[in-house]
Amino acid sequence: MFSSHLSWISKLLLLILVVGILSSCSQSPKTFLGIKYLDFPEEKHLLAQVIELDTALFRYPFRIRIERDKAIVMDLHSSDYYGHLFQYPSFQYLSSFGRRGDSPTEMLSMENFRLYNHELWTLDANKSELTRLDFSSSGDSLFREETVTLDEDILRPLDFAIYNDTTFVIPDYSGESRFLKVNCKGKLIEKIGAIPTANEKALQEARPALAQAWRSFLDYNSRNGVLAAVTQLGEVVEIYNLKDRTHVIRIGEHDEPEFKVSDGYGIPTGIMGFSDVQVTDSAIYAVFHGTSFKEIARQSGKLPDGGKYIYVFSLKGEPMCKYVLDHYIYGIWVDEATKTIMATNVNSDQPIVKFSFGSV
């Protein structure tokens, strides 16, 4: 088992990514620029099947993606390699990639990775680079093909999605817009949306700080044109249809991200919200925590790390189903064809779990 101390340290490291550069304003939202949701028409309890791995690789298994007969798991706080390739569904270990280090071919961090056209893209925020990797002819390893350096005026990117063959979508942490479209050379080509906050003062006076508080995880489905973003703090779900240019904002009972400033540091005052999201062909699935920072501080690392809920929304943002889980998880991969959810669990030496679900 991982120690609770490691879990607590990992949680703090995640929070530093969110609030480390907040510099001004406190937030206490009262009204919203979106549609409230309070409950789901259906609630189901899911039991996990723990996948037994024959090798110990992970310090903080954060993301999981599956394509055909391969599964890839990302380790957010790895000391050696950030990515690990497995056979699927057996989860036999094949190889690792994304070696940690400061040489030109190594990575200082990995925030996320995406599979697209049978290739893999990774994001290194510390180097401000996107890297494309391809599978070997045998399919049991990944090798580096190209690296794209992002423009200097794109503030520290903490997530990305692939829009098409030549374009990426990246959150805008300047606060000037919500997202940026960036071309395959790393150049900014379009700004999308705005932070949907009710805090007009922060929007006018402290946009970069506000943008960091609104850090969101995102996913894009090119088949239906839906881009979904879920806030790491608070409980806000945004759905952008990039084909018809519609935008839906859904806000849960925990409201928009909250923070205050103490001794020059931004301190979250609300809850840990979402930690992953996937847009399938028919729905949006998001991992939700809902744990208050007061409780996190009071428990001093004794709480399990992760979310115990998966919220399911329609592609237009209507709440559909809430899954209540028997394990705490961070990242998910959903296969609607087989009614399967694979997830990562940072609290165990066996970090991969499987849930089976019915129609929602």
Rank of each mutant, 00 (worst) to 15 (best):
M1I: 13
L13T: 03
L13H: 11
L15Y: 15
L17F: 06
I21R: 12
S23E: 11
S24Q: 13
S26N: 14
K36Q: 10
D39K: 08
F40P: 00
P41K: 04
P41L: 02
E52F: 09
A56C: 02
L57N: 03
R63M: 08
L76I: 06
D80M: 05
F86D: 07
Y88Q: 05
F91G: 05
Q92T: 11
L94T: 04
G98Q: 03
R99D: 04
R100C: 13
G101N: 07
D102F: 11
D124C: 06
N126E: 15
N126Y: 15
L133T: 00
L133E: 00
G139D: 02
D151Y: 09
E152G: 15
I154D: 00
P157D: 05
A161V: 13
I162Q: 04
Y163Q: 04
N164I: 07
N164C: 00
I170E: 10
Y173K: 08
E176L: 03
F179Y: 14
K181G: 01
G186Y: 06
L188V: 13
A198R: 03
L210V: 01
A213Q: 13
L218S: 13
R223P: 00
G225S: 04
G225H: 04
A228I: 03
V230P: 01
V236M: 09
L242E: 09
H254A: 11
E256T: 09
K260M: 14
S262R: 12
G264H: 05
Y265A: 13
I267R: 04
I271R: 02
G273F: 10
S282H: 05
A283L: 07
V287W: 08
V287G: 07
V287L: 11
H289N: 15
H289A: 15
T291P: 04
K294V: 07
E295D: 12
G301H: 00
G301E: 02
K308A: 15
K308I: 13
L315D: 10
G317P: 06
E318I: 08
E318S: 14
C321V: 08
C321D: 01
L325A: 08
D326N: 15
H327G: 03
Y328L: 05
I332E: 10
T340L: 08
M342A: 12
A343H: 11
T344G: 02
D349T: 13
F357G: 07
G358T: 11
